[in-house]
Amino acid sequence: MSSVAHGDTVMNKERRDFIRKAGLGVLAGICATSGFLPAFSLEETILPAWDEKPVPGKIRWGMVIDTRKCLGECNECVARCHHVHNVPDFGNRKDEVKWIWKSGYGNVFPTSTSQFRSSEVLQRSYLALCNHCAEAPCTRACPTEATFKRWDGIVSMDYHRCIGCRFCMAACPYGSRSFNWRDPREGIKEASVDYPTREQGVVEKCNFCSDRLTKGMLPACVESCPEKALVFGDLNDPNSDVRALLESNSTMQRKPELGTKPSVFYII
């Protein structure tokens, strides 16, 4: 009798434990499914690391391009960026849309004051992209606030609000903006499903991969560079990689005399 009773209590305890664990498992399952989504063919929807509104001005994303490593005919970053962001290629200059491109010294630094540069420096080609200026002239020119300065220093485009007036293109001293004269979908060979396209009649430009930053990834150009010539980081953080490079190298910005305070720096 007593042994049966003992067995009963053992059973009860085991059962209780089992029920408790099963309950925990179910709870965990509910928690896991409530916030996260099932597998899906479009872009992954992972919750970002932060919970609420970011503090404006705390972060200022910037980039240092080591042009000593960026040599030859390599176009890996351009190709990757344009593929990831569905940038069209129509094969002619008139309809050209570009987020990042390579250009000669005289085009990238037309107002550089340093005379008698070595011929090697003058013959290199230099990467150009949106400078994400701290004092961006394009954001002031935009009549609809379609382009604006983000809390983290990125000059962003809200394509929904762009009316295609191209004031920003006139205001940008770096030619970083392109207008969609044609439906961009005609010019995309291999569409990427991770990012939308634009439509005819809007201006577009580099977004410093703000779409990838929310997923905790580095910009596509930085990631794709085989020579690791591009370094991305927070200019406001004195311990960041970009600040370390700025500390140990002499750098140049594009057209610094305009007071736009570009966030892209070049090591020559």
């Binding site: 409530s34 919750l47 919970d51 962003s156 809200d158």
Partner: peptide
């Protein structure tokens, strides 16, 4: 999300969504 960087939506029952 685009302008203020507030990318997480909390539903009435507490579950969170991007």
């Amino acid at each position: 999300s685009v302008r203020e960087g507030n990318r997480v939506y909390t539903a009435h029952n507490g579950s969170r969504f991007q």
